[in-house]
Write a protein that binds this DNA or RNA. Sequence first.
DNA 1: AGTGAAACGACCGTAGA
DNA 2: TCTACGGTCGTTTCACT
Lengths: 160, 160
Amino acid sequence: MALIGRNAAGKTAQLDDVSKKIIEQLQADGRRSYAEIGKAVGLSEAAVRQRVQKLTDAGVMQVVAVTDPMQLGFYRQAMIGIRATGDTRVLAEQLSAIPAVDYVVLTAGSFDLLVEVVCEDDDELITLLNSQIRSLDGVSSTETFVYLKLHKQFYNWGTR
Amino acid sequence: MALIGRNAAGKTAQLDDVSKKIIEQLQADGRRSYAEIGKAVGLSEAAVRQRVQKLTDAGVMQVVAVTDPMQLGFYRQAMIGIRATGDTRVLAEQLSAIPAVDYVVLTAGSFDLLVEVVCEDDDELITLLNSQIRSLDGVSSTETFVYLKLHKQFYNWGTR
DNA sequence: AGTGAAACGACCGTAGA
DNA sequence: TCTACGGTCGTTTCACT
């Protein structure tokens, strides 16, 4: 077992090849049965279940539904770069609370934060920017990158 | 039933409140049983199963495992803004083929593309930038935003 | 950490409203 | 598009290694 990570509590997380294969199976299809995964990785159903439980509890992995915004009527997505003063963590907290915001990251570089937003249309994006983001205390300036086409999104972090 | 989206084939996708609730259930836990979801939304197990099948087939939703890069030994993430000449779609295709790249989007604004990368450390990031990204034909300049802290990532697009 | 077995519950196909 | 139902398969618990 190779040491691979460190979890939220600071404890080391270990991942052997079998666990990686299990994650790969669930990345391909999150509803695949433990029995089927067991056959694929050479483990009993109970053993697979135990490992999935552990990986989930440790926060290494989670099985969730992800949706396509475009197909749900959200035709306008954008990444917004934010230059800020003051504590960016406070700002990140406030930005996370906005429903249209689905991604917040503190960065080093010419932006202090990057936030991704999902809107129904341009009107909503404009309102969002003016009334909910630029109006926040500590936001110095913003730069908006409207999505023309989401080319590819992978969920296979870590097992590449 | 409200008209909500349009799928890859150009056909309209319709989503009523029940389907939205089903998606919410699976966003909370992708392995929740159809029977349990049925109880929560007031539908039979078979009906839930049918709807999940349809939503999945239409590409509206998919149930997958998502992992935490940090816990898998990828301690360095970054968003890279790219200014380019030529066909950005070709570039997007090439960028998608790089294993460390997990997100590619064509944008309007001062960048033509935004790509998110997942690396083990700074060395890998530097190599990636120089040998795999900036060396691509059509890349004029790049700007890197190193992630200090991924504050929040939501998978609840569309049902907010 | 892993297996195996038995009881239970989930899943799937099909029929019918 | 939904419910109802029966056969099959997956999951759970537990005793054991």
